[in-house]
């Protein structure tokens, strides 16, 4: 299968001699073409979940399979390669590099892999176009609106054609209208390109775009019965 699967993942922190369980026995599976949302209040373990799914953090127990490869036993260098090739991250405040233009934000991902070809450049421009960023290719982040920045970040996540897309509060800095736009675009791209996507959010307005919704509270994940709009 392609996609991401977490099996019985538990994450514990030691803080001031107290053990805190951030995630408890979490299992979730997202297939290609599925867009899954995880909602929960702050402090519920959302970010820990995303960090573990995104190969940024190792679980205390359990297994994380990305395209059938167990990443829990990999070391730092291999993890960074997994992040580069198989995961596209959309971070909450867009987190673009301030001195790169929109198209360079995308091409830097290719640069990390080696070199940038003509096709890569064409693909980057196509992605920006798909996300409604025509004529913004040569704008720096400080010349773009919040929605535009978030859309550049989405384009960047798709740039290396990863199988997994992870989004961390993609709408947190946007108003309702732009929030809807951004999540709708994300959902479209996920379907179009057949990615497994997980969006962590506390924004209940955005759940209509998702195939499944999980709720997380005190580290425990439960699937929510959700009536999907046709």
């Amino acid at each position: 299968m392609t996609g991401i699967q977490l099996t019985n993942v538990t994450k514990k922190y030691i803080e001031n001699k107290f053990e805190i369980t951030a995630l408890e026995n979490v299992s979730v599976r997202v297939e290609a073409g599925e867009f899954v949302a995880i909602v929960g209040p702050s402090g519920s373990g959302k970010s820990t979940f995303l960090s573990i799914a995104g190969a940024l953090l190792k679980p205390t127990e359990g297994q994380v399979l990305i395209n059938n490869q167990d990443i829990t036993s990999l070391h730092e260098k291999q993890l960074s390669s997994v992040r580069l090739n198989q995961i596209g991250f959309i971070l909450q405040t867009a987190n673009l590099i301030p001195y790169l233009t929109a198209v360079d934000q995308l091409l830097i991902v290719k640069k990390m892999k080696g070199s940038v070809s003509k096709e890569d450049r064409a693909f980057a421009l196509q992605l920006l176009k798909d996300l409604g960023l025509e004529n913004k290719e040569n704008k720096f982040p400080n010349e773009c609106s919040g929605g535009e920045r978030q859309r550049v970040a989405i384009a960047r996540a798709f740039m290396n054609d990863p199988d997994i897309i992870l989004a961390d509060e993609p709408t947190s800095s946007l108003d309702t209208k732009r929030g809807h736009e951004v999540v709708q675009l994300m959902a479209e791209q996920v379907k179009l390109r057949g990615k497994s996507a997980i969006m962590v959010t506390h924004d209940e307005r955005m759940l209509d775009y998702c195939d499944r919704v999980y709720r997380i509270e005190d580290g425990v994940l439960t699937e929510e019965v959700h009536t999907q709009l046709a």
Binding site: L56, S81, F89, L91, P98, M112, R156
Partner: peptide, 16 residues
């Protein structure tokens, strides 16, 4: 620091 963190999160290696 934060910027380098972002680069690492999207897959940039230490060497890069």
């Amino acid at each position: 620091t934060h910027q380098f963190g972002v680069l690492k999160a999207i897959g940039g290696s230490n060497g890069f």
